[in-house]
Amino acid sequence: MTKKVKRSILYLILVLIALTQLFPLYWLVTFSLKSNIEIFGANVIGLPQEWRWDNYIEAFTTGGIFRYFMNSVLYSLVTVVMTGLLSAMAGYALTRMHWKFRALVFGIFTLGIMIPTQAALLPLFQVLDKLGLKGGYLGLMIPYTVFAIPMSIMILTGFYKGIPKEMEEAAYIDGCGVFRCFASIIIPIIKPALATASIFTFLNTWNELMFANTLVDSDKFRTLPVGIMSFAGQYSTDWGLIGAGMVIATLPTILIYFLLSNQVQESLVAGAVKG
């Protein structure tokens, strides 16, 4: 075999797998814009003959998806901010401050990355119930933050270790307090790592299913993934409508991915590469 033939075969493999990865998603987007007549036989894989944007309008207005969407935005934003702040502070203490149980505490957080969330689910359910938080916004924000903290701390401590101490030192000598120094010097320096950690937290929170499905029972506080799942059960024959709901649930993550594909890729494999 000549080199050229070999190279073409390899290229063909790349293209074929790219198609396998893309085609189901292409199909999803096109059927979200079709009527059942097209989806169920008249036009299964082509572009819509008649672009039914109505599916999207209907999904937003009838299925309560707008409410779920706003809930998911709220859960994700609060989780990202809380996780970022708490783990930036903890990460600072774990790398820059001097204390006895530092290694132990770091070990506990490292362990946290490996806990399968389902192993904590039932007691978490009970304790949130006892505290009167289960079923409300906090009842989901707290678990989300708690289980996002370990990975966020890993990403941030890795970064802290690599930044020189000179700038802080100068500030402290000038009489700057710890809190002010943290807020005005440290936070700006760790911004890139904070962004990486935040992307990771956001994607996991936005897409999370098990906690949201178990810890929330009222429609009012439901997240988008759980909402779409029950929506899909309710309107199971209206594929266009369900498809529209699914695209709506995916759009924010895909948008972020296309805008920041390098950062997103980096943040999702950060744990693997550093660990």
């Binding site: 502070m89 505490v105 506990i108 192993a119 978490l124 304790v127 707290i142 708690v146």
Partner: peptide
């Protein structure tokens, strides 16, 4: 700096 994250994690992560 460390207690908020640690306590939350112990209470809602490790204890469960």
């Amino acid at each position: 700096f460390v207690l908020p994250a640690l306590l939350l994690f112990l209470l809602f992560g490790i204890a469960p």
